[in-house]
Write a protein that binds this DNA or RNA. Structure first.
Lengths: 347, 347
DNA sequence: AACGTTCAGTAAATCGTTTTAGTAACAATT
DNA sequence: AATTGTTACTAAAACGATTTACTGAACGTT
């Protein structure tokens, strides 16, 4: 039997504060929120209120407030997977913006699972998130709250998509390899389900052709499987070797697969970059500390997170009337490290 | 002027549903929640209600419900940093448990910043999280909601701490190196602020002494700085070399610093593991795909996340009366890869 | 003295549920 | 015929704020 005490345990409500001050909750609310109509309340009373609020450690109940104001100051973020280094980088960026704006966010991972892809947006909307950020995640149905995608898979009416400038990325990558003298380039392309797969392949092809490398001269293999592990790149590189085609450089779909590929090559007695150059993509944390350190096309993941969060915030708070761009492009950069080198002089 | 329409836009409330059915909200609520007192309501009426709810796509308002029930089904998770591979692994584990229980969680990163360390728990409590999970994060003041820490820094009354079996970890690490013949072992110890630093050092010392390696024979350097980058390990290894002491193996504080150390050694012309063995700690994703692949003491981070979340859930829902252990221990495992080898035979 | 203004506040509705405590209407029991 | 029990519901009070629309008192003006 402790019900009586429990009532007041921990937090004090506006009502008890009002009782204590012998004032109405209205007055307190007005004063504490500095409402315009509190202008007529004398400073003395205000001070009394503030003082008591501080002393009794009054904290407004967020639920009650949210219910009334119909605002939760909460976003939902959908990611494929938390532990792959890509999502968490984006989340960092998202958080940096939201924290400053007094927002928090729910994260939900769908693991590329169909059922979850349908269910999770629902769950988040039911939790009354004010907006949704979908990272490398297909949007199956018209979202019910303002949404921004990052590396979105498909264009959806009313949804702003933050994407990398793929043309530029391909140019940087192919250009770099070309400048090093590579003319036979193998490409490890992404899985079906990855949003960037198709676009990456298209733009790489264009960049290659622009330099007179016939697109059908490009040897390609595709990543298979959905674990975020270099194993996939390892397997891909093995198949590449099995093809027996000649290549002096590999442009991998991402850093993870590049790392796996390097391992496969070294196992086969080829030195990277002496015998074969390997170019990654993304610039995840691990890339810089590979051995050899990975040359890669950097996606500004943190920035993309920031940009998405800021855009969503603008949609909701700053400028709800504005028509927002349907695509926001961010620029890749070439990060030259040790995994690429001049094409070896054969005979 | 579109206020009129907006009211019904999107979601329909219980009230409108009741009006539509010419029943009271009470009845609907009882039926929809399958309350015991709904026993007397005839099936026919119930079906009518369910049907209408489905047709009009009724979704109960989470805020209203939470306000009434005083339950938010939300946890708060405090992490030092999202992008370091450690936290996101733990979060994955946390999420796997929470998702199944219908809980969501807020993440907040404090970056080891004093002000945030004080403020963030407040913020989360104000958002009415039902419980808190603090990952590698010091608890400054008595938490106001049930709390579980992971790799907690300090024992706090009433807080359950999920930690690694450090003795065992040290035994595995030192034992492994010892068995390979190493007798001069350098230790890279963690930063001041890291929870595990002290304990790690103590247990390593004990394991070493147990094997007759005098503790003062251990060469040590400490990581400096708070970026989650191998750079720190690189610097540490450089200072280690500068000391001029002899060592044939290095036991690093974590994988990140081990990776940096390997780089430093190779730059100085030492081969890993031929000339020097390097042992990491944690087994983050990148460890397996280093070159050489990192031998390391694996912390079951995902499991630790699961365990913490499950424990917190038990505290709140399953068994609130139970006295919970103040420490839950998880076991490390030795993952042998390529960065450690037999001590080289000198002269 | 009557009227309008400012001052200092409050009552009550509202947000959208859940839950307690009923209440009519009818049937069964004594 | 009065009591008790079921059945099928509902009114109203929570939950804890915010906000609209007042109200009485004091003051100033003509």
């Amino acid at each position: 039997m402790k019900g009586k005490e429990d009532k007041t345990k921990g937090t004090i409500g506006l009502k008890q504060l009002a009782q204590h001050l012998k004032l109405s909750t209205t007055t307190l609310s007005l004063v504490l929120n500095d409402a315009p109509s509190a202008a007529s309340i004398p400073k003395e009373t205000k001070d009394r209120i503030f003082k008591a609020a501080k002393e009794l450690n009054y904290r407004p109940n967020y639920l009650a407030r949210s219910l009334r104001a119909q605002r939760t100051h909460t976003f939902g973020v959908l990611v494929p997977e938390l532990s792959d280094g890509y999502s968490s980088m984006v989340l960092s960026g998202v958080e940096s913006v939201l924290a400053a704006a007094g927002y928090l966010y729910f994260t939900a991972s769908h693991m590329h699972n169909d059922e979850l892809l349908d269910k999770l947006p629902q769950v988040l909307v039911e939790r009354l998130v004010e907006g949704l950020i979908a990272v490398d995640t297909p949007i199956r149905s018209m979202p019910q709250v303002p949404t921004v995608t990052i590396s979105g898979h498909n264009a959806v009416e009313g949804v702003t998509n933050v994407i990398l400038n793929h043309e530029h990325a391909a140019e940087l990558g192919i250009g770099h390899l070309y400048d090093l003298g590579h003319r036979s380039i193998a490409i490890i392309i992404g899985q079906e389900f990855s949003s960037d797969t198709e676009e990456r392949w298209r733009t790489i092809g264009e960049s290659a052709e622009r330099r007179g490398i016939a697109i059908d001269r490009l040897v390609t293999v595709q990543l298979e499987g959905d674990t975020p592990s270099p194993e996939l790149g390892y397997e891909a590189a093995k198949s590449l070797l099995a093809l027996g085609e000649k290549f002096t450089a590999v442009f991998a779909f991402n850093d993870i697969s590049a790392i796996g590929a390097i391992r496969a090559f070294e196992e086969s007695g080829m030195r990277v970059p002496a015998d074969v150059s390997v170019l990654g993509f993304d610039d995840i944390y691990a890339a810089a500390f590979q051995n050899p350190a990975l040359t890669t096309i950097r996606q500004p993941l943190f920035e993309m997170g920031r940009l998405a969060a800021q855009t969503l915030l603008d949609m909701l708070v700053r400028d709800p009337e504005k028509q927002f761009e349907s695509v926001l492009t961010v620029e890749p950069t070439l990060v030259i490290r040790q995994s690429t080198a001049r094409v070896p002089v054969t005979l």
